[in-house]
Design a binder for these strands. Structure first.
Lengths: 171, 171
DNA sequence: GACTAGTTCTTGAAAGTTGAACTACATTGG
DNA sequence: CCAATGTAGTTCAACTTTCAAGAACTAGTC
């Protein structure tokens, strides 16, 4: 019905220990719940899903409030296709506009509009408060450190290999 | 364009410390990357997204390999609507079938078919290996413990409101 | 110049998700 | 028993995401 797992099928398959299983289940539950929670919060208070908000944040922090599409896609760790649709939607809302890249005619810059900046400024406090209340108010400073370190390790291991390799305009 | 944040706008809004921001960014990145990674792995090797796989696992572990729809939705922490669609799709594939609940005519049981069980058994080792390779092989046993504890705390805090209400002994 | 290969971004269709409206049945209180 | 209200699950419309394909451009090579 689908491709068999590649070579070495006879390997006895290391299972997870109870300890690991418990951590895994908690991880899945917590990340799903938190993701849903923040998505709903932002949908309600700012009219957009979490990733769209993150996109506006990226633009707000960038010099001149603008950034190349590919750069954005990499920073947000999403596909260019997804980004295209997202920017198209934000553009329809008037939060973002596009501009041809002068140095590379294939390129596009996404630019945060004044209106987009205002939406962001209105949404930010509520969002930060939600994050704080859902995560940081519940963890000790020590746990925050542990979480940061663990997540840093996991993210590093999942980075699409090339990542830093070729972005000449970032150098 | 959207609802203004409710009352008390003048509150100075506690921001995140650098320490917290760093942890937050790593968290967002790691969870996005891991989710994508596992979704792709399961789509490739088992022809379904992660949550659908989790649904089959739930059924496989349930007595008689069957479970009430609402019960499943709660266990998976998804909406009933989403579950309806998921079961419909899995039913079209022949992995799951439905059955009227004898004791409550409104109810439906989802049942794992023999074919579904086989798909699951084929997919499981590869999935476990992916989880292991992406997470547990990179963390020390101590970190696994920390992660489990942290995620347990977060999940608990996000449980749809009632949760703590009728578990007085947890207070 | 023109060929080839690679990059950038968009597009359209299919698959998945969401929230609200809806159907059908169950339960409760008079 | 009956009306009112609640619960189980589905369906609809709007939206987001993914996948595969393609248009437009750049750069290296002969």
């Amino acid at each position: 019905m689908n491709t068999a797992s590649p070579g070495g099928d006879e390997r006895p398959a290391r299972w997870l220990t109870d300890h690991e299983q418990q951590a895994w289940r908690s991880y899945i539950q917590a990340t799903m719940l938190l993701d849903d929670y923040l998505d709903r919060q932002l949908q309600r208070d700012a009219g957009m899903p979490h990733i769209y908000y993150a996109l506006l944040v990226q633009l707000a922090q960038a010099p001149h409030r603008r950034r190349r599409m590919t750069e954005l896609a990499i920073a947000l760790k999403i596909t260019r296709s997804r980004l295209s649709h997202a920017v198209a939607r934000l553009e329809r809302n008037g939060w973002v506009r596009r501009e041809d890249c002068p140095s590379d005619k294939r390129g596009q810059n996404a630019i945060l509009t004044e209106e987009g900046m205002q939406v962001l400024q209105q949404a930010a406090p509520g969002h930060v408060e939600a994050v704080r209340q859902a995560m940081f108010d519940r963890l000790t400073p020590e746990q925050v450190g542990q979480l940061g370190e663990i997540m840093r390790i996991l993210a590093e291991g999942l980075q699409p290999q090339d990542s830093a390799a070729d972005l000449p305009w970032l150098r």
